Simulated scan of single mutants.
Amino acid sequence: MEYLSLPPGYLTTSLAALAVGVDPATIRDWVRRGILTRCGGTPMRPIYRVTDVLDARHAAKPSRPGQRAR
């Protein structure tokens, strides 16, 4: 269940993914890796600032040991 109403300038995980053209799992991965931070919501339904999501899209992603180059 999504939020019925969000404050202007905030996105759910699925809306953030749509905004930057990635899967919702990628948004959750960015949070886990410290590239994006939650700004509210609940643990099961976090919300993010639009500007933070857009900044995360263009941020340099830290590599993991053994990760294949694309």
Rank of each mutant, 00 (worst) to 15 (best):
Gly40Arg: 02
Ser14Gln: 13
Val31Asp: 01
Tyr10Met: 12
Thr51Cys: 08
Tyr48Met: 02
Val50Ile: 07
Gln67His: 02
Leu11Ile: 08
Arg49Tyr: 10
Arg33Gln: 12
His58Met: 08
Asp52Val: 01
Leu11Cys: 04
Leu18Gln: 13
Thr42Gly: 09
Arg28Met: 05
Gly34Ala: 02
Val53Phe: 03
Asp23His: 15
Ala60Gly: 06
Glu2Phe: 10
Pro62Phe: 00
Gly9Phe: 11
Ala16Ser: 02
Tyr3Asp: 07
Asp55Ser: 14
Arg64His: 04
Met44Trp: 14
Tyr48Glu: 09
Tyr3Pro: 00
Arg70Phe: 09
Pro7Gln: 11
Thr42Val: 10
Val50Ala: 01
Asp29Ile: 07
Gly21Ala: 04
Thr12Phe: 11
Arg45Pro: 00
Pro62His: 00
Thr51Asp: 07
Pro8Ala: 13
Tyr48Gln: 05
Arg68Met: 09
Tyr10Ser: 05
Leu36Asn: 03
Thr42Cys: 09
Arg32Tyr: 10
Gly21Phe: 05
His58Asp: 11
Thr26Ile: 11
Lys61Ala: 07
Gly40Ile: 03
Tyr3Phe: 10
Val50Leu: 06
Ala25Met: 07
Pro8Ser: 13
Asp29Ala: 09
Glu2Gln: 14
Leu36Thr: 02
Ile47Glu: 07
Tyr48Ala: 02
Val50Asp: 01
Thr51Phe: 08
Ile27Cys: 04
Leu6Met: 05
Gly66Ser: 05
Arg33Ala: 04
Lys61Pro: 00
Arg32Met: 08
Thr37Cys: 08
Pro65His: 15
Asp23Met: 08
Leu4Glu: 14
Ser63Ala: 12
Arg57Tyr: 07
Val53Gly: 04
Gly41Val: 00
Ala56Thr: 11
Thr12Gly: 09
Val22Asp: 02
Glu2Thr: 13
Asp23Tyr: 13
Arg32Ile: 05
His58Lys: 15
Ile47Arg: 13
Tyr3Glu: 06
Thr26Leu: 04
Gly66Thr: 02
Asp52Glu: 03
Glu2Asn: 13
Thr37Pro: 00
Arg64Met: 09
Pro46Glu: 06
Arg38Gly: 00
Gly41Ala: 07
Ala59Tyr: 01
Pro7Arg: 11
Ile47Asp: 03
Lys61Ile: 11
Ser5Asn: 12
Arg28Trp: 00
Arg64Tyr: 06
Ala69Trp: 15
Ala60Gln: 15
Arg38Asn: 07
Ile27Asp: 05
Leu6Pro: 04
Ser63Leu: 13
Thr13Trp: 09
His58Arg: 15
Arg70Glu: 09
Ser63Asn: 12
Gly40Pro: 04
Arg33His: 12
Arg49Asp: 03
Pro65Tyr: 15
Arg68Ile: 12
Ser63His: 14
Thr12Arg: 06
Leu36Phe: 02
Ala19Trp: 08
Ala60Leu: 10
Ser14Asp: 12
Pro8Cys: 05
Thr42Asn: 09
Ile47Trp: 01
Pro7Trp: 13
Pro46Met: 01
Gly41Lys: 10
Trp30Pro: 02
Pro65Phe: 15
Arg32Phe: 07
Ser63Pro: 04
Pro62Trp: 01
Thr26Trp: 11
Leu11Glu: 02
Ala59Met: 06
Arg45Asn: 14
Thr51Arg: 15
Asp52Met: 03
Thr26Pro: 00
Leu18Ser: 10
Ile35Asp: 08
Ser14Trp: 13
Arg49Trp: 09
Arg68Lys: 15
Ala25Arg: 15
Cys39Met: 12
Met1Cys: 05
Val31Ser: 06
Ile35Phe: 05
Glu2His: 14
Asp52Phe: 01
Arg32Gly: 08
